[in-house]
């Protein structure tokens, strides 16, 4: 049996103060199933499951759901759809009365975007204008628990590079829990998806990289 990454804490248990605790009668009580790891400097709590609430600066994968008059409505695995205005896609002027926006980005197409504005979780704006953000052609999107994305990416993207190399897939992970995978062969894609799902299920164990290597070799 593999060793755990930290100590498992269940809701209702007394803990030291952390981001998943609340105060009751001078005691701190855990709100969530979480993992508490200690090193010399600090204690860190990781939730084992969560819902994605967007914050400005997050890199997300989105699926376009609707084409509106002045932009697109994009599913970013959150409570509300995000809005992608035309100005955040193209630099030149577009006459919205004469152009068919669905020719630029159509429904069900996938984009890699940055969150640029969040108001009350109702108005969420995203952009694909700068940096590596773009429309992604081909491939497919899988959804994982947003709390596990950090482990899927790994330190300095080590885990993602490992899966990429072993399965010959192109992978981009969004902070919202959507992961885009592209490969020329269907078997490779299935292999990558299985590996990602494996990480999602076993994210709280130590030595995850070795476990993943073993898992990929067995399959």
């Amino acid at each position: 049996m593999a060793e755990l990454y930290g100590k498992i804490v269940l809701p209702g248990e007394e803990v030291e103060k952390n981001e998943f605790s609340y105060k009751f009668n001078d005691r701190f009580i855990s709100k969530k199933v979480s993992l508490i790891s200690k090193n010399e400097e600090k204690t860190k709590a990781i939730s084992l499951s969560s819902t994605y609430y967007p914050e400005v600066g997050d890199n997300v994968i989105g699926i376009v759901r609707e084409v509106e008059a002045a932009g697109w409505l994009v599913d970013i695995n959150s409570i509300n759809y995000a809005f992608l205005p035309i100005a955040e896609v193209v630099r030149e002027f577009i006459d919205i009365y004469r152009t068919d926006l669905s020719k630029t980005i159509n429904i069900n197409e996938v984009i890699y975007a940055k969150v640029i504005n969040v108001i009350n979780y109702k108005i969420i704006q995203i952009s694909i204008k700068n940096g590596n953000f773009k429309k992604l052609n081909g491939g497919g999107v899988i959804s994982v628990n947003p709390a596990k994305v950090a482990r899927i990416i790994g330190k300095n993207m080590s885990m993602m590079k490992l899966i990429s190399e072993k399965t010959n897939c192109e992978i981009i992970a969004g902070k919202n829990g959507y992961i885009w995978i592209k490969s020329k062969k269907a078997e490779n894609m299935i292999k990558a998806i299985n590996a990602i799902k494996f990480i999602e299920k076993n994210s709280h164990f130590k030595g995850l990289t070795e476990m993943v290597i073993k898992y990929l070799e067995e399959k």
């Binding site: 809701p11 709100k31 969530k32 199933v33 939730s47 499951s49 628990n145």
Partner: peptide, 9 residues
Amino acid sequence: ALAGISMKD
């Protein structure tokens, strides 16, 4: 608890 919802206990 498994769904990760914040709860008192």
